[in-house]
Simulated scan of single mutants.
Amino acid sequence: MECSNCSSARPIEDQGTLLFVSSQLIPLNKITQLFTNSRIFTVDSNQVFDDGQPHTVTNGVNYFIPISYLSREELLNGLKSVYDKLTSSEQLDIHIEIDESNWSLAPTKSKAVALPQFFARMKHHNLVTMMTNGQFTSHMQPIIDMQSQRVFGYEFLLRPSAGQAAFNPFELFSVAQQTGLHSFLDRAARISAIQTSALHLPQGIKRFVNFLPSSIYNPNYCLSHTFKAIEDNKLDPRDFVFEVVETERIEDIGHLKKIFAIYQKQGMQVALDDVGTGFATLEVLPELAPDFVKIDRGLIDNCDQDENKQQQIIRIIEISHSFGATVLAEGMERKEEWDFCKKHGIELAQGYLLGRPAALPLGTASIEI
């Protein structure tokens, strides 16, 4: 079984040839006319009929035209001109194939990239290169047991590799979404976290790893790489907690429940992030019944001084404990917040008060508050 959404993107070379594929003739005619009049591009005349229209494949499903370019910069400018001349439906119908080994007498769009995604890959070439080359690593932020003040685990967060340009993780995932690479990046980030944990953490320390439900199209296949990485690194599945990443809209509860069930069947635990604000509402908690409930940092911030936040936090604790979940307070920066959360029965905490994300774990098994 294959999943094209989990695959990496082939690099867009400084010079090369692209195959434009469409189920409609009109948008390819527009592209052919535009590129034929340019000195930067070469349209393969063998693939154009005498009337100047692109060839159709033998099964009558798609039209196609190979176009060569001399410069990545000029290709970007040319694609912008093409983009502006196409209707929105034509933009979505046009697909571009980079790998000439896939070309045949009957090209299809199955292994090609939709024009909007290809255009986004050109615009964000540096970030796409960073993704596809794996120029990132995982840093660890400690999660502390509030009763014992011992290290319970670490959350793994994506960061640039040593010597690489800085990036904003939110921006990186946003670009991945625009370019159709979010499944690839999400999988790569999970595997990076697993490998980093194997290098630095002993058995028994929990490893909290983020995931995007929308990036997992076929859970049994898309998660198989994650399970194999855990097995290959000889790690205990029971040490892993996979959490729905913050900002991820929960649109399909059934799909997320299926993902949770597959993780749990493998002996792992699951967490719901961002609870109390955004999309992780209280209504979904009992239905999803995660092993861990992470209260959003926005509620924890100055919770000792805000009665409304206190009521919301206490309600989350009550609901979570009703189905046996462990509660974790995120974004803790002040001792007063720690005292309030501990007093009301929150088991775990995470935040700058306890430790910032770092390339290495804490040098101690417990902390002093």
Rank of each mutant, 00 (worst) to 15 (best):
E2F: 13
P11Y: 09
D14G: 07
D14E: 14
T17Q: 12
L18W: 01
L19T: 05
F20D: 14
S22M: 06
S23P: 03
I26A: 13
K30H: 14
T32E: 04
Q33T: 06
L34G: 00
F35W: 06
T36Y: 01
F41Y: 08
N46K: 09
P54G: 03
V61M: 06
S71I: 02
L75T: 07
L76F: 12
L76K: 14
L79T: 04
S88L: 13
L92N: 12
I94L: 09
H95I: 12
E100G: 03
T108R: 11
A112R: 10
P116R: 11
A120K: 14
V128P: 03
M130N: 10
M131P: 05
F136L: 15
T137V: 10
S138K: 02
P142N: 01
G153D: 03
Y154F: 13
Y154T: 15
E155F: 01
L158S: 09
L158I: 15
A165N: 08
A165S: 12
L172C: 07
L172D: 03
Q178Y: 09
Q178W: 08
G180L: 10
H182M: 15
A189D: 02
I191F: 01
S192Y: 01
Q195R: 14
P202D: 04
P202F: 00
I205W: 08
I205L: 08
K206E: 02
N210I: 00
S214N: 11
H225S: 15
T226P: 02
F227L: 09
F227E: 12
N233W: 01
V241M: 04
E243P: 15
V244C: 04
V244K: 03
T247H: 07
E248H: 04
K258P: 00
K258M: 15
K258T: 10
F260S: 04
Q266Y: 12
M268T: 01
L272M: 08
G276I: 07
F279D: 07
L282P: 10
E283D: 12
K294Y: 06
D296T: 15
Q305E: 14
K309C: 09
Q311G: 06
I314W: 09
S320V: 02
T326F: 12
V327D: 07
L328G: 04
G331S: 07
M332C: 14
E333G: 09
E336C: 03
D339E: 13
F340G: 04
L360C: 09
G363I: 03
T364Q: 14
